[in-house]
Design a protein around this nucleic acid. Structure first.
Lengths: 171, 171
DNA sequence: GGGCGACATTTGAAATGTCAAAGGTTTACG
DNA sequence: CGTAAACCTTTGACATTTCAAATGTCGCCC
């Protein structure tokens, strides 16, 4: 790939920097976005085919699965990065299906707490196992060391982004 | 399950592999997903505030911007990773706003070709410049070398995922 | 030249997504 | 007390999303 006899390595860097080095971030973003879409679509398809569930429902249940005492809707909204109004409908549907339960605690009647039903826990357990397997399969060709490195470096991206938001939100 | 194939590996790796190394892919995926959501939301907010546009509309126009002769809806669907039915409505709204034009070529009346209007090109030009700047800003704290490396390594992930799809789709 | 299979887009139902405004509740302060 | 501010959730209007089924065209083969 690299061309021969370049005693002027500096030149390349300068040229690259001046011409298109500026778009590295854009390029990275586009690739992150398309990759994420690809994986999402695959997971969505499998969740649908094998469990009749949707990805947002899975996400929401995942949060409840590790907080057996349940979570307030606002907290669910933050953790799933889904708007409040959206959580309302999501929980509503899951309640209809008997996977989730809504309770208003005694102390504060403004609050609604959602928690998994026993049925919900059982079903989600199965989904979680399958879900993890799908990801292992999809990333099977990637060197584990790279996987680990990516986790780190994307963390750096995430934290840079967090520090440059116009609204001022956090992880 | 899987047994350690080579006895030459470090103890660390074995330990890691036995304990929680199995979930590395899941961990990476969750981080990719949350980071992508974070960036998407920020871009969405800015597109809305500064241009009154939505992210899918921006994506679609981006494709048309570099194909001045226009693209068939099916091709748009593939490139934006948006379903056919979705493209229909998207283009419909953009046409209403006078940003996009729909034409049926003479040769084949099954086909609809969408292309940017002059107004569409002007407006998108401005959005593209801003968009690139937003990304540079958001990733400002990330070492350029890391940005480049991430682009490469995520490419490896993408291609692994592509090779392990149940449906069998490609980039 | 009629019809069948392949192709391209649209439609329709249901779910998810955003934002802004409205609805109750609680808290705090004068 | 009693009202205003703060908090939590829901609602409503719209845009986007997916899937499956319908619609419309083209190509080809007999």
């Amino acid at each position: 790939m690299t061309e021969p006899g370049s005693a002027t390595v500096d030149l390349e860097i300068i040229v690259q920097g001046a011409q298109e080095g500026k778009k590295q971030e854009l390029r990275l973003w586009l690739r992150m976005l398309s990759t994420t879409k690809l994986v999402s679509q695959e997971i969505r398809r499998r969740l649908r085919n094998e469990f009749g569930a949707t990805l947002p429902q899975f996400d929401l249940m995942a949060q409840l699965y590790r907080e057996r005492d349940g979570l307030r809707l606002g907290e669910l909204s933050k953790r799933t990065m889904v708007t409040n109004g959206n959580v309302t409908g999501l929980v509503e549907r899951l309640e209809t299906d008997g996977l989730v339960l809504r309770v208003t605690p005694d102390g504060d009647r403004r609050v609604t707490v959602a928690k998994l039903t026993e049925k919900g826990e059982t079903i989600f357990g199965a989904m979680a196992v399958a879900h993890e397997g799908w990801l292992r399969d999809m990333m099977a060709d990637v060197d584990p060391a790279i996987v680990s490195e990516l986790w780190q470096d994307i963390g750096a991206v995430k934290s840079s982004v967090s520090n440059h938001l116009s609204g001022g939100d956090f992880d």
